[in-house]
Amino acid sequence: MPASPTVLLTGASGVIGTALLAELSHCHVIALTHRTPCPGADEQLRGDLTADRFGLDQHTYTALAARVDMVVHGAAVTSFSSGPAATHLLNEAGTRKILDFAADAGAVLYHLSTAFVARHELTRANLGRDAGDAAARPEDYLDSKRAGETLVRASGLPATIIRPSVVIGHSVTGEISAFQGMHGIIHALLRGLLPLVPVPGPSKVDFVPCDVVARAIAALIAEGRSDGDVWVTAGHSAPTAERVLELTEKVAGDLGIAMQIPRMVGPDMVDRLIRPVFISGLHPRTRRRFDDMLAMTALFADAAAFPSSLGEIPATVAALTPAQVESAYAATVTHLARAKKLAPAPSAGPRQEVLAG
């Protein structure tokens, strides 16, 4: 591997891509962008992942392939409500185009998937449960990511599949380039919009800070890893749903936000009693918000802990301790509360240390 490899990065403006750019100072990064510019990359090239040769002319494509040593494929439809057609178009068909390019370039591929492919059977659709008014359909997203992984494995190319769990904000600042699904639930908790949470209290809620994910990917690139699956998760250090609610209430209290811990109930009680008796008569928007949350939280209810490769592959990125996971979550809640004007901005003070890695 060259001392300063050239990396083609897709999804550079996304949550992981934005954090990763700060960790790739030892690389020459070319960001393949579609709509959103990426000022942090060394170069930008506008292209379309779903088109042959990314929509580039033959000369530009060939010249790009001759330069690239590694590809980090992070571009994806991550919304649970985009529908199967749009989701598969980028997450599956786009992966085919990336594999074609990696083969042409003779490049190592780092393919970003999700740890939740291992919980595909827990979606409400696969459990035969009513989705109600939910716009969120996790099964579409997980189907597309599973298909992408299958393509990568079948390609025979040197490739590492990276499976992060839920990605939250920076471990110290809580900052993130875009708020995502879990942020929506935290926001609703802080505003008192969730009288109940449809997850049993002991269920593990796995999340990792965006900077930890970025450091893990950068370390894989630095050591030239070119095969296998890497789980970037909290693993057994993930807190329970009950503990997450306690932490949220504590941070809210520290910020001067009055919050009550909602009741936690299992999916069976939701389907037998709560949805037909209490939810069915609510305003459609409120009902849809509840059913969306039900669809997302189904992936956590009574699930076994994820494996974690942190501390092993690569060994330079330490496994997260329960205290570090909780600290990172508190930072995310704090940043979200301030960004949404639910709490005042912080006064100037000394910056804390980043999680050891």
Rank of each mutant, 00 (worst) to 15 (best):
P2V: 15
A12N: 11
A19D: 00
E23M: 08
E23Y: 03
C38D: 08
G40W: 00
D52Q: 12
R53L: 09
R53G: 03
F54I: 07
L56D: 03
T62D: 15
A65E: 10
A65K: 04
A66I: 10
R67F: 06
S81C: 13
A86P: 05
L89D: 08
E92K: 13
T95V: 13
R96W: 08
K97Q: 15
L99E: 04
L99G: 10
H111S: 06
V117L: 06
A118I: 05
R119K: 10
H120S: 09
R124D: 14
R124I: 07
G128R: 05
G128W: 15
D130P: 05
E139G: 09
D143L: 08
R153M: 13
A154Y: 10
G156Q: 10
L157P: 09
T160Q: 06
I162K: 02
S165M: 14
S165Y: 00
V166H: 04
H170P: 10
S171C: 11
S177E: 09
Q180H: 10
H187E: 08
A188I: 01
L189D: 00
L193F: 14
P198W: 03
P200Y: 15
P202I: 11
K204P: 14
F207T: 02
V208H: 04
V208C: 07
P209D: 06
V212K: 00
R215Q: 14
A216R: 00
A218T: 05
A219H: 01
S226C: 12
G235K: 02
H236P: 01
S237P: 01
A238G: 15
A238F: 02
V251S: 03
V251L: 02
V251Y: 00
A258T: 13
V265W: 10
P267W: 07
P267Q: 13
D268W: 11
V270P: 02
R275A: 11
R288W: 01
F290I: 13
F290P: 00
A301V: 08
D302W: 09
T316H: 05
V317I: 11
A318S: 15
L320R: 01
Q324E: 15
S327N: 11
S327G: 15
A328F: 02
T334A: 12
L336A: 01
R338K: 06
A339Q: 12
K341G: 03
Q352W: 09
Q352M: 14
G357A: 13
